[in-house]
Nucleic acid binder design. Structure first.
Lengths: 261, 261
DNA sequence: AAGTGGTCTAGACCACTTT
DNA sequence: AAGTGGTCTAGACCACTTC
């Protein structure tokens, strides 16, 4: 048989995405363009958390590139925990409804034994106007509507975390104390399923502080007990901040675990 | 011209490494075997930190595999920060003598401004016998010789970190207070250059504690000031623990920064 | 011009899962 | 048997660096 002609389809041209809109004139590698297109479909909800995305072969046909190029794009998405590959089955959209995803953001581990989910006690849930510092971190305007949540988390019956959360009011319309109370599982699962907002990345600042009287009472410890103070900002697709969480961790029977690579 | 015959060189056979000793009968993917061979050369010091390793083409010839397979092996080593690729130049053994490597393990950042290296004040350097807890973490026997170092680090003239280190005596023979004092730059650079021990990974446990009187005095703060307590174990090739570091961080003008992905 | 890593393609076969 | 991701090969050209 005769060989296929060499195909000089190189990266000075943007991908021609079937009938999709032409890609804007960025001249990044093809696989990065493909990655961006797939990310767009994830963001738009075309493929929902937990679902199977099209196979590599199908995506390669759709985008008119080789399977290897699609593979490299998906490899990076898998490395960023946006999708999960399962040999023989396919590639799935990542979800917070997973054993493994549970402890990706909460790094507080028990000194003894294996980590297991805590029990939430909601102290306060209300709508309010964003203070300046909250607005800045969430990329909102000062005074924009936000939802404020305060809760205590118990592990083995011991109150261990007291935390305050701020969420953009617009994206979390309809989030009430009742919804929170009745929901089983981690809050990120609720945010993902009910509000279509998936946290994919976060930055955290940690300090040591002394427990103020109110927080000490909630944690049932003496005032001035040393606590870990964490300020975490979580981001969804497009590096958009969508949650501010300020937590106080009691580290007498727990520690914050980190891997440095 | 005639085409080259398809080459059914598949992964049920171990790599035949030229004149090197035959690989033990593990049946992992070829690129993992190549990765292990390259790691071995890194560990043995065949290529030293900062040096250029052989090109992908040369390694492919040496190991009798395709360039793509070598590439995949090196890709993973680069992701683990064992080597660094530079387009057009080659692949280099990672080193702690690098701007970028400086803040890979020390995550304490100033609240304002950019991070810059601290100034060390050595309090104590001595040889001693490993207490049980230190021995356990360093994978030594209780009573084995270790080197103990206590120092304070100052940032902008402000004492901010007091830390104690334990190193296996065997690997760090000849490490004295004088060597430490005269050495410019981060300790990991010294360990790498002078003792051939390169830290490649670490695990850290963090808690909040109250400053004891001695530590408070060193940091020039009131006793009972809340401090971040970090216990870090660093590992070299082969997941061998080679450093235990217990630090107390003053987090009044600094914070511990973490990225959650 | 030559050498390096970076991208892209095409095709083969393997390992795993489902039908 | 068919479909999926996983591995491996071979060859082409690009981008960057050095000579």
């Amino acid at each position: 048989m005769s060989s296929a002609p060499p195909n000089p389809n190189h990266n000075t041209t943007a991908v021609s995405g079937g009938s999709a809109a032409a890609v804007s004139p960025t001249f990044s590698p093809l696989y990065q363009q493909i990655k961006a297109l797939i990310t767009k479909s994830l963001q738009s909800g075309e493929w929902k958390p937990g679902e199977l995305i099209p196979s590599e072969v199908e995506l390669a046909n759709r985008f008119k590139v080789s399977q290897g190029t699609v593979r490299k794009a998906i490899d990076e998405l898998a490395a960023e925990n946006l999708v999960m590959r399962k040999q023989g089955k396919g590639t799935f959209v990542a979800t917070h409804h997973e054993e493994r995803a549970q402890f990706r953001f909460l790094r507080l581990m028990p000194d003894e034994g294996v980590p297991h989910p805590g029990v939430s006690q909601f102290i306060e849930v209300k709508r309010m106007r964003a203070p300046a510092d909250v607005a800045r971190l969430l990329d909102l305007k000062s005074g924009d509507a936000v939802i404020f949540i305060k809760r205590v988390q118990h592990f083995d019956g011991v109150p261990t975390i007291v935390e305050e959360l701020w969420l953009p009011g617009l994206a979390f319309k309809g989030l009430t104390a009742e919804r929170l109370e009745e929901y089983k599982g981690p809050m990120y699962g609720l945010f993902e399923s009910e509000f279509g907002t998936r946290m994919i990345r976060a930055t955290e600042k940690i300090r040591a502080v002394c427990a103020a009287e109110g927080d000490a009472a909630l944690l049932k410890v003496a005032a001035n007990t040393p606590l870990l103070a964490s300020e975490r900002v979580s981001f969804t697709y497009g590096d958009k901040p969508v949650e501010l969480r300020r937590g106080l961790y009691l580290t007498e029977r727990h520690h914050y675990h980190n891997e440095l690579n």
